[in-house]
Amino acid sequence: MSRISETTRGVFVISVTPFDDSGAIDWASLDRVTDFYLESGADGLTILGIMGEAPKMTQAEAAEIARRVIGRASGKPVIVGVSAPGLAAIADLGKAVMDLGAAGVMVAPPGSLKTDPQIHGYYGHVTRALGEEIPVCLQDYPLTTGVQISDEVMGRIIDDYPSIRMLKHEDWPGLSKISKIRAAEAGGRRHISILCGNGGSFLPEEITRGADGAMTGFAFPEMMVSVCALMAKGDRDRAHDLFDAYLPVLRYELQPGLGLAVRKHVLASRGAIASAALRAPGAGLDAAARRDVDFLVERQQRRLAELGFDPGSPAR
């Protein structure tokens, strides 16, 4: 399996972790949702991220999930989230999943980092603990981690730690960060792959600023695949038309504390997973919220048909 690099592009879908109603991992649904993402046109997958409920897993479960998905992906690259409070756990899981054939690992900064020197130094510790041969995706998600990585510190991290090959960009507002990274590259800084998150909520604008694709888990991955393809062809208006059709569902899914439940409800409705259950602590949608989402999805499908898109199929 190929590894991520500074030139990696496309859509890497952040996978949910399916559970049954008792909270046990639903292995059959894990296979099914892996197939679903790849059949939707994804270029790769990212597992055990924040929306994959990684903090609720044991280390053994995490390793087995990685084994299962990497094997199922049939050569498509799989990035594995290995974020943890301690470096020993990051290194242990990181090296284990790379031995299983992972394409790279993703590491978010712990919320304990408060100063610029701490943030910069932390990624030095991470890359040394993993070994510089392991490619790292830095997850920049201050809305969840509470860690704000300034443009200047991000530049120093890129300069000083060459095994960080990719940025998962989820700063908000953060379009200027992409622009500044690309401007610095024009001035001689090494290139880094940038894939964007936040449910894909700013995907067309991010690509315009120089992002290489998406890395997020919106329940309609074919939207992200299609928007990236249309933008690559230079059809910006058509990309925005398509994107706008999905915005009501995307907006509903972005609600803090509710987003994963919405995502799992939609994936279950689409047959990608058997149950919308979250592992405790975490609750699903109530009946009113399910009705809201179902109504928005129905309107979305009608709008896609009006625009001449085939709902469920990536537009190339």
Rank of each mutant, 00 (worst) to 15 (best):
M1V: 12
I4H: 08
F19R: 02
I25Y: 11
A28K: 15
L30K: 05
T34V: 08
E39Y: 06
A42W: 11
A63S: 05
A66D: 02
I70D: 09
G71L: 10
A73W: 11
V78P: 12
I79R: 01
L87G: 12
A88V: 14
D99W: 00
L100F: 00
A108K: 04
P109F: 06
P110R: 06
T115R: 10
P117M: 10
I119A: 07
Y122K: 11
Y122S: 06
L130V: 05
G131I: 06
E133K: 14
Q148D: 08
R156K: 14
D160H: 11
R165M: 06
M166L: 15
L167I: 15
H169T: 05
I178Q: 10
I181K: 08
A183L: 09
A184S: 12
G188P: 15
H191C: 10
L195I: 08
G200P: 06
E205Q: 07
C228H: 13
C228A: 10
A239N: 06
D241S: 11
D241H: 13
L242R: 04
L250S: 05
Q255T: 06
L258E: 04
H265I: 01
V266M: 02
S269M: 01
R270N: 02
G271F: 09
G271T: 06
G271L: 09
L278K: 01
L285G: 04
D292S: 14
V297P: 06
R299H: 04
G308N: 10
G308H: 12
A315N: 06
